[in-house]
Structures are given as C-alpha cells and as structure tokens.
Amino acid sequence: MHKNCTVNMHRNCKVNSKQFKESKLAHHLLDDLKGIEIGGSFHNPFCLNTINVDYTNEMTVFKEIEKNITGNAVNIDVVAPGDKLPFPNESQDFVISSHVIEHFYDPIKAIQEWLRVVRKGGYVYMIIPHRDRTFDKDRDRTRLSELIDRHEKSNQTNSNDAHSHQTFWTTEDFLELCKHFNWKVFAVQDVDDKVENGFTIVIQKN
C-alpha cells in the first residue's frame, strides 16, 4: 500500500500551477515518515508519503472543486470514515489533514481515533479554518462545552454532514480543547503556511 501511495505522492506534487503551495512545517516534521492523509486533494497537496483516506470514492462536491481547479483529482487509497479508520493501533508515523476536522460533528472522536493509529512520538497534524478568516466569520464560535456534549452524545445521533462545517474555531479555541484533553501541542501556527486562511495545530502522541 505504501508503494502505491508513494507513486500517488509524486504524481500529485508540483504538476499544476494551480496547486496550492506546500507546507514547510509539514515537510520539516514529516518528510521520510509514512502516514495517513484524511481527505486529501489534488489542488492542496502536502507531497508526503501518505495513504489517502476518504469517506467515499464517488464524485462529491469536493472532488468537483478539485477537477474544476486543476483538471484532476487525487486517488483515494482507502474508503473509510475519517473517525473510524481500518488501521491497527500505533501503526502510523502521523495523520495529516487540511480543512477536514471542522466537518466532523464530533471532532473529539476523530482526533482520538487519529491518535489511536499514530505511534508514540508520532504526530496528528491539522490545518483548520480560522473562523475570522473564512466565510464562517459571522458564525458563533463553538464552545468547548458544546464539543464535550456532542462527544458524549455522538453514539446516539447521526448528525454528521460531511459537506458542511460543523464547528467554528479560532486558534485559542482549539488550544483550549487540546488543554482540556491533555493533548500535547508540539507546534502551532496562528496563520498556516499553506493556504493561510487557517491555523495549524500539531499534536504529538505521548
């Protein structure tokens, strides 16, 4: 599987002038490692050695955006829910995502799942849209108490809508979430070094 993903990695990188720039921080931390990307896209590549996981291989609105921008779409290696991954515990060096975590009704569950599959010392690397720098700027910030309430009730509801933002954060809001769950924050960028309308949080597994 890694062999196929390495081929995909090279094919998706630096082949189209409409692709977004890569993240220097991601390369600094994750080059020479192997991991999982949740919801990868051709127009927003990380150019790392990753297995691309998505919840469907059908043509979604996101795949249409990819093709409209670049004329192509990234290959999906594994079809699975992003918060229920078919990988053993501590089997990956990292999990990476860009503008994905906000689509989960229960982001706590998703992050806990990503930490499950990452080895000790490995990383969960997230670029997250900043509420004030996106079309969500007029939405109320999502409180920590609401996220905890969702997490406690997530097994009783089916509120996921993969096409819509479920949560609206500032950098400080997300750091509060990390502090509450004692997730070790390894690196923070208040303005991400990729698309620059979000922020970057890197959690290292203890």
Rank of each mutant, 00 (worst) to 15 (best):
H99M: 10
I38R: 06
C13A: 13
T6Q: 11
W114G: 01
G40W: 00
N52S: 03
S91V: 05
R11W: 09
C13E: 05
V53A: 05
M9P: 00
V100F: 01
F104K: 00
P88C: 08
T70G: 11
E64M: 11
F20I: 10
H10P: 01
K67Q: 13
V79G: 15
P45N: 06
I108M: 00
F62W: 12
C47N: 04
G35T: 10
F62Q: 07
K63Q: 09
I108C: 00
K67S: 08
H103E: 03
N4Q: 14
P81M: 15
L85W: 02
L48W: 00
V118D: 01
K18W: 12
E66W: 05
K18P: 09
N75F: 13
H28F: 14
H28V: 07
I38Q: 04
L25H: 13
N16K: 13
S17V: 14
P81C: 12
K14L: 14
P86W: 07
N68C: 08
R11F: 10
G121K: 06
C5R: 04
S41W: 03
N16G: 11
M59V: 05
N44D: 07
I76P: 10
K34I: 10
K67N: 10
D32M: 12
E102S: 08
G71Y: 10
T70C: 15
I76G: 13
V118K: 03
E37T: 10
F94V: 09
E66C: 08
K67L: 08
K120G: 03
D31G: 09
S17C: 11
N75P: 15
Y55I: 06
F62S: 07
K84F: 06
N4Y: 02
S17Q: 14
P86T: 07
D77Y: 02
V53K: 02
N68A: 13
S41C: 07
C13G: 12
V100R: 11
G40E: 06
S91C: 11
P45T: 04
G121C: 07
G35P: 08
A80D: 12
V15S: 14
N89K: 14
G71I: 12
R11C: 08
P45M: 05
D83E: 12
L115I: 05
K24F: 14
S41T: 09
G35R: 11
D32Y: 13
G39F: 04
T56Y: 02
I101L: 07
N52T: 03
L25M: 15
N4S: 14
E113D: 12
S41G: 11
L115V: 05
M9S: 12
T6L: 12
N49C: 03
S97G: 11
D93R: 10
E66H: 06
K120T: 10
H43S: 06
K18N: 15
K63M: 09
A73E: 14
G82M: 12
P88I: 05
N72H: 13
A73V: 13
L85T: 04
E113A: 06
I38S: 04
